[in-house]
């Protein structure tokens, strides 16, 4: 069976990302399955049904066997999976949470992920993100739903050094955010790589 071609909203930005210095690396994350989970009661039952413990601390995320579980609200999470197809993940999670009064919706394509790494990434983010990104405050495992520039994002911290983040952004805003990030990184970009 021929595979259907996949395209990514930031394909055209790959070259520009390549030219960035190591202090500000931007990489489009591969597509992964994502499901938005709503569940009012978490506990042993939910953990058993889902096969993972949903984080209950506000603005945090935890790694799972094959992805991440991101706290989005007191009764809302984002689960990702690198091994399941979107419809498989939705079906499995929905089956798990329905008996508990929960729900699950496939949102794999709602957002794309951008990985931001490097010593200057925090400076780039600080040009358009009003939350405190100091590693003491926003270390590994922290997350935030905030705005970056004028785009709503889910921001995940992947390191305790403040130099590794994932930004989840609505797919339709991906191009805007990529342009915005490249513009913000201009100050740290060597002259030869700049497109002025």
């Amino acid at each position: 069976m021929a595979e259907l071609l996949r395209t990514h909203p930031l394909q055209a930005w790959a070259g520009a990302f390549e030219r960035l210095p190591d202090t500000v690396r931007l990489t489009a994350e591969p597509y992964v399955a994502m499901v938005d989970v709503r569940l009012s009661a978490v506990g042993a039952e939910a953990s058993a049904a889902l096969g993972l413990d949903l984080p209950t601390a506000a603005n945090t995320w935890v790694p799972t066997d094959d992805g991440r579980a991101v706290w989005l609200g007191p009764d809302e999470w984002l689960l990702t999976s690198t091994t399941e197809a979107p419809e498989e993940l939705e079906a499995r999670v929905r089956a798990a949470v329905l008996p508990l009064g929960g729900s699950a919706a496939d949102v794999s394509a709602q957002r794309i992920g951008l990985r931001l790494t490097g010593a200057r990434v925090r400076d780039v983010l600080a040009t358009g993100c009003s939350i405190d990104l100091h590693p003491r405050v926003f270390g590994r495992g922290r997350s935030a739903q905030t705005t970056l520039g004028q785009a709503g994002v889910v921001l995940l911290s992947l390191s305790d050094g403040g130099d590794d983040h994932v930004v989840l952004v609505r797919s339709s805003f991906a191009g805007y955010l990529a342009d915005w990030l490249l513009d913000a990184a201009l100050e740290f970009t060597p002259t030869t790589a700049r497109q002025e």
């Binding site: 004028q150 805003f173 805007y176 513009d183």
Partner: peptide, 18 residues
């Protein structure tokens, strides 16, 4: 600040934009 020109207001596009 930087909210000028193309960055003045986000342009949302569909997956078919190109």
């Amino acid at each position: 600040g930087r909210d000028r020109g193309r960055l003045f207001d986000p342009e949302r596009v569909t997956a078919l934009h190109e």
